[in-house]
Design a binder for these strands. Structure first.
Lengths: 240, 240
DNA sequence: ACCACTGAGGTGGTCCGACCACTACGCATG
DNA sequence: CATGCGTAGTGGTCGGACCACCTCAGTGGT
């Protein structure tokens, strides 16, 4: 595409659509620090006139930045810049997991295996007593019920707690997206029908033991095996 | 054929905004397979009347799904579903890298270190002669010039070629986002001013040697060290 | 002096209708 | 048969109108 990025910060020649230009300009304002996280933007009407476009086009631009987690519109109040933290910006990652299929699912699970194993290893080294208690809470709750829906909830919370304990919010947010509810539900529907409940419980117990022992390498192996089990099963499902 | 959503997890008769509902409905259509990748959607006007909303609101919904890489609007032709591949859906990942700052940058680089090292290890085991030639091409081109802009280009292409050789398109797409042009340019501006050119060249050479030797473990270590160097430098920059 | 209520103004949310810019495809033309 | 052109249909843009909601100053009571 076009290359030159001179000093002209707001230099926006006749690019693509008017709306796309507005998106880039607002994004640039934030990138250059002219709009701090949490700041309130001018009204839609003012923004539109400032950039010389109609309110309709400006609204499309705002909507685009809203779904990306960059802006937040509060009805009756105004438009605000989000905190631009990992959780805000990576929320869209869930869409990828929800709409991927076929080979893409396996690749996604492979990425999760890599990140989850590392995150679990980090957690083993850094986890605090409070965080460990949180992990244990979901572990026992998971083992105390037979309702698949509830198991899934605590399963997600179990791994989420570990992700938080790893101390890298960005990684935790990515893992959160890779483990979105619909994604897991879709994959597990068939997997757990093959009596994988018990195996899952054993694997979770192994991860927990490694965390208690503060043994990063064992934790890494246990987490990799845990995700790898599902990954391998899914791989066979795509080989009819 | 629409209206009431039968039993469901989020049984909410009247959700949020009309536009958000339209976004969810279109997303659901794709998720349920009612819209195949590459398929053409009805016109904006038809879609709007089908869902009982105005064309303006429908356009906002379409715009939202467009920036997410789910839909693609072609002026004068129609609206189409993308191929829903990794590259389409993960394009938004670059926005995260562009707008993150402070501690988030280090976390992002940590994620990249984990994924890049694994990808490089996989590449060492799987890379083909053609792919290896591609890697070498950018390596030599990178060493043959002093233009920072050109070096950056070949640097990106160098790692991109390795990511492709790893055989996981999803991981390659994520790494592509984590290494977006503006992201790298921002971080390297200061880094390379401290005479890190030579060190970067040595690290790239080490990665290349490991690929030629088809030694995954050495490749993993070399890649981790390479990214880790930048990561550590950036970490010190945030401790004033 | 304090607090609860109320009203008006401002904001985002939705809708409508018109026109423009571009593409696609069939028809007339050579 | 190949070429060119015109038309119908599509997304893109615009302006205005009205609605739903939040905010806060002003009011009235205690």
């Amino acid at each position: 595409m076009d290359e030159s990025l001179p000093e002209g910060t707001t230099a926006a020649p006749q690019k693509g659509t008017v709306t796309q230009r507005a998106i880039d300009q607002i994004k640039a304002m934030i990138g250059e620090g002219r709009l701090e996280p949490g700041a309130r933007l001018p009204t839609e009407r003012d923004l539109a006139s400032q950039l010389g476009i109609s309110r309709s086009s400006m609204r499309e631009a705002i909507r685009a930045l809203t779904v990306l987690g960059v802006l937040e519109a509060r009805h009756g109040s105004g438009i605000y810049v989000t905190q631009l933290e990992a959780g805000d910006l990576l929320e869209t990652f869930g869409v990828v997991a929800d709409l991927s299929r076929g080979p893409g699912l396996v690749e996604l699970l492979e990425v999760r295996r890599i990140l989850e194993s590392t995150a679990t290893a980090l957690a083993a080294a850094r986890i605090t007593p409070d965080q460990l208690a949180e992990v244990e809470k979901h572990l026992t709750a998971m083992n105390a019920t037979d309702d698949p829906e509830e198991i899934l909830s605590h399963d997600l919370a179990f791994h989420r707690a570990i992700g938080v304990a790893a101390g890298n919010d960005t990684m935790a947010a990515i893992l959160e997206g890779l483990s979105s509810r619909t994604f897991r539900a879709r994959v597990w529907r068939g997997y757990q029908e093959e009596g994988a409940f018990e195996r899952t419980r054993r694997e979770h117990a192994a991860i927990h033991r490694a965390l208690v022992a503060r043994d990063p390498e064992t934790a890494r192996a246990a987490a990799a095996a845990h995700v790898g089990e599902v990954e391998q099963w899914l791989r066979t499902q795509l080989q009819p």
